[in-house]
Amino acid sequence: MNRITATFDRVRREGRAALMPFITMGYPDLESALDLVPALVEGGADLIELGIPFSDPLADGATIQATSQQALDNGMTLALCLEQVAALRARGVEVPLILMGYYNPILQMGGAKFAEEAARAGADGVIVPDLPPEEADELRTALHAHGLALIFLLAPTSDDERVRLVAEQATGFIYLVSLTGVTGARDQLPPDLADFVARVRCATDLPLAVGFGISRPEQAAMVAQMADGVIVGSALLRTIGDADDPIAAARAFVRQLCEAVGTPSHS
């Protein structure tokens, strides 16, 4: 949790927004994350979201559905995701690593065991898209006991009462879903995005990161003007999937995004 807060503080002091790319662990190959994550850091990523694949990702669009299925076909499991997080830390990756996965695999491992092992592996936070605050008491308690953040989402449909509820319970940062819909690259940002971000901003000092639908550097640049963090997933995965050299392609795409959000490259 401290690593997340420290990163957003530093980025804020530098007068820019944080870039948070998302990849599906186990895609395109079972161990791809071990090389992709360092490449994303070289490209300038400030935090990285690591998707735990699930067979029925109902909040995801076609791209992440396909990468998740591929990852499962490759043999990816939650336990293996945690092993790879530990391996990444052993290889010197220092950026905050945030696990994103649906609730059932976590429930089957057991919330307490998951929290313990995620902390031991070196993860900093967890996002569970099908676990709203009302259902999250048990997992939140377990994660907080191990110093991990449980990051909640807010959507354009969230009214002011829910914004207040999530603001009270959130740790780390708040994930703002830019649009009413599923993940996936879109041609245009929703017109009411700035109003939505401003509405949440009134309720909390926590960092606000915006995701869903952001696919191009110029869109990332626009979001960077209004929020503390910019999340790009499907567009990055498509770049990875289309490339002959996925590692180089991922690094180059993230570097482009970083330049757009005003991030100096770390390499």
Binding site: D130, P132, E134, E135, L153, T157, S158, V166, V177, G181
Partner: peptide, 12 residues
């Protein structure tokens, strides 16, 4: 039971 749903659907 319960309601394990994405935030977008909670208001709905």
């Amino acid at each position: 039971g319960g309601a394990y749903i994405p935030e977008t659907l909670v208001p709905a």
